[in-house]
């Protein structure tokens, strides 16, 4: 595992890859970024909370036109993972309106994004049909 690095801090690799949120201990609001305080209640104490790896698509789009360097087309979606909303790509499907549906059940999946000069492989995440 030492030759892998998660694409983002909130992706936990290993036998059971999953996302981990900063959860406000006062109000339960969950965030994926480094926090100064809670946007909901201004509380300053957080605990790590594992996010469910299964969810359903609440919204999606297929981006076919983007800034240079951004690989298109890709399916972007908002996935409700048992109450926690997550943004991510829908992967392992054709990027077409026929292949993705609102309310579709999906599950977290990881995939390699390439290695650096030291041979460390970056691992990204997305959601694929359950």
């Amino acid at each position: 595992m030492s030759n892998q690095i998660p694409f983002v801090d909130y992706l936990v690799l290993g036998d059971h890859p999953h996302l981990v949120a900063n959860e406000c201990t006062a109000c339960g609001a969950r965030f994926f970024d480094r926090r100064n305080a809670c946007a909901g209640c201004s509380g300053t104490e957080f605990r790590k909370a594992d996010v469910a790896t299964d969810g359903e698509i609440m919204s999606f789009t297929i981006v076919t036109f983007a800034a240079p360097g951004v690989p298109v087309p890709f399916v972007s979606a908002i996935v409700n993972c048992q109450g926690t909303s997550v943004r991510g790509n829908i992967i392992n499907v054709e990027p077409s309106p026929e292949s993705v549906t609102m309310g579709q059940k999906v599950t977290l999946a990881t995939y390699p994004l390439g290695a650096d000069e030291n041979g460390v492989e970056a691992i990204g995440f997305g959601f694929q049909p359950a």
């Binding site: 690095i5 694409f7 801090d9 970024d33 789009t61 360097g69 951004v70 690989p71 890709f74 790509n89």
Partner: peptide, 20 residues
């Protein structure tokens, strides 16, 4: 070598890889 950056600790551009 990969270097996590920003508030999400991303190692490369997130656009197109973590939705849009």
């Amino acid at each position: 070598s990969w270097e996590p950056q920003g508030r999400f600790g991303e190692v490369m551009e997130t656009e197109g890889r973590i939705g849009t």
